[in-house]
């Protein structure tokens, strides 16, 4: 951790509780060793308190009755419309808002945490760069499914659209088998989890541009949080993994 750069941004993220545990521990150590660092962190805490107080000291004025009436009117009109026939009038999501239409995203949304991952700015950015789908669109492909049933953890396989590496294999509390893996191409990278229920389904995915530079609490934290949220437990290794994989090929 000696190469940790104590930038304003990282110290601020510490003050705001936005860092992962490891980095936070490193910052805490740096603060203990250097009062100047501690002072910078405390300044960020102070500026947050000041800002919050300043905003809450200015009272939020009551919503003017005319405005309230207008909005309530709109709400009433909205609730009166037949939702099924109204769906055709729905405008496409804004640029940068994550895509809901692709099957990958639908699958990913099955896990509530995935919504968080997909909402990341850099995800939207990489989607724009690589055009429709990119690696995300490959998560459901038979090639990927085949690789997931075949290769042991720690191994790479070259696929037409990029390189797939299986990171680890888990058995969930409900006995379901899940695998964490990564897909890389020259321009982007996707970290994903697929779980098996008769066939492989991607349940979680975080995409980033391959050239993504500074992402302090990025994909890796999200992955760890996700694995924790599905009670993944300890990864299956060696014989245990081979037996589990053999099941999927039956």
């Amino acid at each position: 951790m000696s190469q940790l750069h104590l930038s304003d941004e990282i110290l601020m993220a510490f003050a705001d509780g936005e860092l992962d545990e490891r980095t936070a521990a490193a910052i805490a150590k740096a603060m203990a060793e250097d009062p100047a660092v501690a002072k910078r962190v405390m300044d960020f805490q102070q500026s947050r308190r000041l800002t919050r107080s300043a905003f809450s000291a200015a009272p939020m004025p009551e919503v003017p009755p005319r405005m309230l009436a207008a909005v309530l009117d709109r709400v009433k009109a909205y609730e009166a419309t037949d939702r099924t026939s109204a769906s055709s009038s729905v405008v496409a999501p804004n640029r940068g808002w994550f895509r809901r239409k692709t099957p990958v995203v639908q699958m990913a949304l099955a896990a509530s945490i995935a919504a968080v991952a997909l909402a990341l700015g850099y995800f939207a950015g990489s989607q724009e760069r690589t055009g429709a789908g990119g690696l995300m669109a490959q998560l459901g492909s038979p090639t990927v499914h085949g690789a997931l049933s075949g290769i042991p953890s720690g191994q790479d396989v070259e696929l037409p659209f990029g390189r797939l590496r299986v990171i680890s294999t888990y058995r969930r509390a409900d006995r379901g088998l899940c695998r964490e893996f990564r897909l890389h191409s020259s321009s982007e990278a996707v970290a994903a989890v697929a779980c098996r229920n008769g066939e492989w389904n991607a349940t979680f995915a975080v995409a980033s541009a391959a050239d993504d530079t500074y992402a302090p609490s990025g994909g890796d934290d999200l992955m760890a949080t996700y694995l924790q949220s599905i009670n993944a437990g300890a990864p299956l290794i060696g014989e245990a993994e081979s037996r589990a994989l053999a099941e999927t090929n039956r």
């Binding site: 936005e18 640029r95 700015g121 302090p216 990025g218």
Partner: peptide
């Protein structure tokens, strides 16, 4: 600081990277 949203949520609202 006032709405207490996370960096991530804020980035999404603004349509910019977290950085």
């Amino acid at each position: 600081c006032a709405e207490e949203l996370s960096y991530r949520e804020t980035a999404e609202i603004l349509g910019v990277p977290i950085g």
